[in-house]
Write a protein that binds this DNA or RNA. Sequence first.
DNA 1: TGTATTTCTTAACATAGATCAAGTGTAAAA
DNA 2: TTTTACACTTGATCTATGTTAAGAAATACA
Lengths: 190, 190
Amino acid sequence: METHKLIYYLRKWTNIKDEEAGVILTAFEPISLKKKEELIVPGETCEYIYFITKGCVRSYFVDDKGNDHIFQIRMDNSWIGDLESFYSHQPSKYYIESLEETQLLRIKEETLDELFLKVPALERYFRILFQKAYVNALNRLSDQMWEPAINRYHNMLKEHPDMFQRVPLVYIASYLGITPESLSRIRKQR
Amino acid sequence: METHKLIYYLRKWTNIKDEEAGVILTAFEPISLKKKEELIVPGETCEYIYFITKGCVRSYFVDDKGNDHIFQIRMDNSWIGDLESFYSHQPSKYYIESLEETQLLRIKEETLDELFLKVPALERYFRILFQKAYVNALNRLSDQMWEPAINRYHNMLKEHPDMFQRVPLVYIASYLGITPESLSRIRKQR
DNA sequence: TGTATTTCTTAACATAGATCAAGTGTAAAA
DNA sequence: TTTTACACTTGATCTATGTTAAGAAATACA
């Protein structure tokens, strides 16, 4: 019997017994998105968090002038959702949209809370997940504040080369906090 | 018997029984810092995480040109430490320094891991703590990327008015990602 | 296969915020 | 009380990145 991808990733940081793995898997519901389909939109409450088994999505908001601002791009084997809306039950401010055909597993808060009681190792997994996500966000913040755009671009090229194969540069520019024109100029310099 | 401050804050998000509270409290070690004393310095591994019971600290790094870049300012009843170094056992890149006389509670990773096994509710507390910290860091990132400095200043004034009473503007400027000169100009405009 | 649409680049000009260099207050130290 | 160091402000100039506008390339579509 082959181990499910999700379980494979959970086991990287925690001990999940086989019977627990079964309980976990039945709690998640698989869904799929075509290219450019919306997973969440502003005004609606984000009722699920999602694990991307295959594909690519972006989280962004639209400002008063109608410009997109992308703060997350996530690909295979990562989590996505509006955590703020998910836990506060308040309407989301964000869009989350697929950039290609995407397969996800979703879970509701109630179901997740029940799982945490049945499988404490899962709560440990999420503790570690958020801890790492927090450290990453702080590092990204620090780069955004004090590294010039050209360095941010080169770091991204090194750390996520795969994104450049799958995601249009307009989106990558926004994720880097610059305009597509600036990115284009940066790329011209060697 | 009065409840300890730390327990009071843990109980905001989790159920800690009285006997568990005792176990937790004995695992933490109180320390105190004079004004401008260093808690961690680059090159050393951060072996503890700290809960500030009273006082104020900043986390920052120093770039090639010798400029400080402050990415965190924390006051009473919050957690501080270099999580990346703490969990990876790699040398820290940061300084953490007190800005005033400060009292803290510290705990080692081993001790914390043992506590997590004895008191699962504590691991839940940290799961929620990191989750919230992550959401905050993403919001701060988004502001840094797409809000002009003047808005970031006004938001900070609204959300942390207390900091302006206790922290010099030079540090607040760095935290906002601008120079003291720019902050001064922003403040002049009404 | 040709046409439309999206993606990417280029150039001229504008601007927020940085840098450099003095200066003024203010508070600790002597 | 005077000195010294730190905190804050001001002005002149500079620079990275944004804005606007156009066109070229690439991709999807008919």
